[in-house]
Write a protein that binds this DNA or RNA. Sequence first.
RNA 1: GGCGCAUUCGUCUAGUGGCCUAGGACGCAUCCCUCUCAAGGAUGAGACCACGGGUUCGAAUCCCGUAUGCGCUACCA
Length: 505
Amino acid sequence: MSDNQPSPARTRYAPSPTGYPHIGNLRTAIFAFLEARHTGGQFILRIEDTDRKRMVEGSLQAIKDSLNWLGIDNDEGPDKGGPHAPYTQSERLPIYQQYAQQLIEQGNAYYCYCSPQRLEAVNKARVAQKLPPGYDRHCRNISEEEKQKAIADGILPVVRFRVPLEGKTSYNDFLRGNISFENSTINDQVILKSDGFPTYHLAYMVDDYLMEVTHVIRGHEWIPSVPLHILLYKAMNFPIPILVHTPLVLNPPGQQGKLSKRNSAVSVVEYRKDGYIAEALLNYLVLLGWSYDDKTEIFSMAELIEKFDIRRIQTTDARFSPEKLEWMNAYYINHVLSDEEFAIRCLPFLAEAGLISEVEVKTAPNDPTRWKFILDACKLAKDKAKTLLEVAPEVEFAFHKAESFEYPTADLIGKNEGAEAVKTLIEAIIRKLESVPDEVLQDKDTILAAMDEVGVELSLKRGQVLWPPRVALSGKTKSPGCPEMIKLLGRTETIHRLRVAQQKL
RNA sequence: GGCGCAUUCGUCUAGUGGCCUAGGACGCAUCCCUCUCAAGGAUGAGACCACGGGUUCGAAUCCCGUAUGCGCUACCA
């Protein structure tokens, strides 16, 4: 059959509450989520709020909204609780402090009383000597008097990890194989800050251990920190989880660096506002750094869960392509979404454009007549729109009165012989519409046939016949198909609009 | 500067020693369809697999060096 059954993975997404999550970040969350679901494991949401200076109000909600919209649900987390609650680091402070204390007692960590000024001076001096910046480990061998003086001065110490001065530390990266570092290049990193909060290095590790996380899935910018982590895992006697470092999402071609605000929309809400479909964004993001085979590109969530293989995550950074995202979004609108699903997603955008009321966003689907009209209107834009934002301009004609249209009368004439000819043509169309039975107006093909009869009558080509009604009905030169518009508006309204146009000539 | 990771069409990728005179997709071009705009269909241009050395009967695939890109180098994550 297929590959051997992997054991259930416990993975997590552990964002910092600094606002709306970055799309590159979310992609890593998607990978972690898919791995958990694919293996029948659990996906955990954990909030890493250990840096109080960078906290942004409302971030938790923003994170939940982003995940929610993309269709990523967690099994445990601050909102849901779980066997290892709390899932917010600021509520777990005593736990980290206890582990830090243990490391100190074991001799693997030490208090450091150095001032920020001294640290800065040390760094400067080292850089001047062409040495890599870093802590000079001054407090490793601090004298008792010096220590007592610092305490008497009320200096709050940090806790630093005591890194071996010699030797090598290596580990097996899940995607990249063996990676090793000289211990001499590793700093005596701070693991507990002077305010009693842990740094990332201590906190993530303690939590992952306690929460029984099996796979650490994060961006590859963490690789340089891994040797420190390995040393810490060993000092604390934790098993080392599977370490998966995903590629980064870079700016579009031509721009340098990691995907940034300057170059593209970077949060999920922006894409939502711009009319992107959640499934399309998710699908696109997954394909940035992962592939299933040499041809499949469109995946439903169910297919992703079934087919996701963490081993196929790329090691090369990927450039974000707004063009391909837009293509994929259009593909979802045109080919994946049903008419009903599409119309439902259009509602907020129609309201935003003032075509329907805010309450109708909720009530319209329950009002059969109104819903049919809105559904039919949206359908006119379905195989054309690239984003939901493009729907309203395409269908607004159906919601506006003909009297409000503003267009040059020359538009009405188009390829025809002149105002008089167009007047005659419109008259003929009106007569045809009046004489034709109701069934004819139910179908765009029979409407087209009726229009063709008018064409034969007046010796005009199809393009000439359909041009004036297009402008009369939509108020524009670019519009949905003419028979489609007639069908949507119905006999009375169509004739009315033609008469309004007639006045203009 | 130091350390680390990466390197297949402009971009996302397939490829794990012979099936590769390198496949798919986006974008681009041309044509078809056509009531406008799209969508759709077809075709095409586009990669000496970063470069230089090995290993091998045989390398995009393995090894070494160089170059380039990216990341890290905080009491940020």
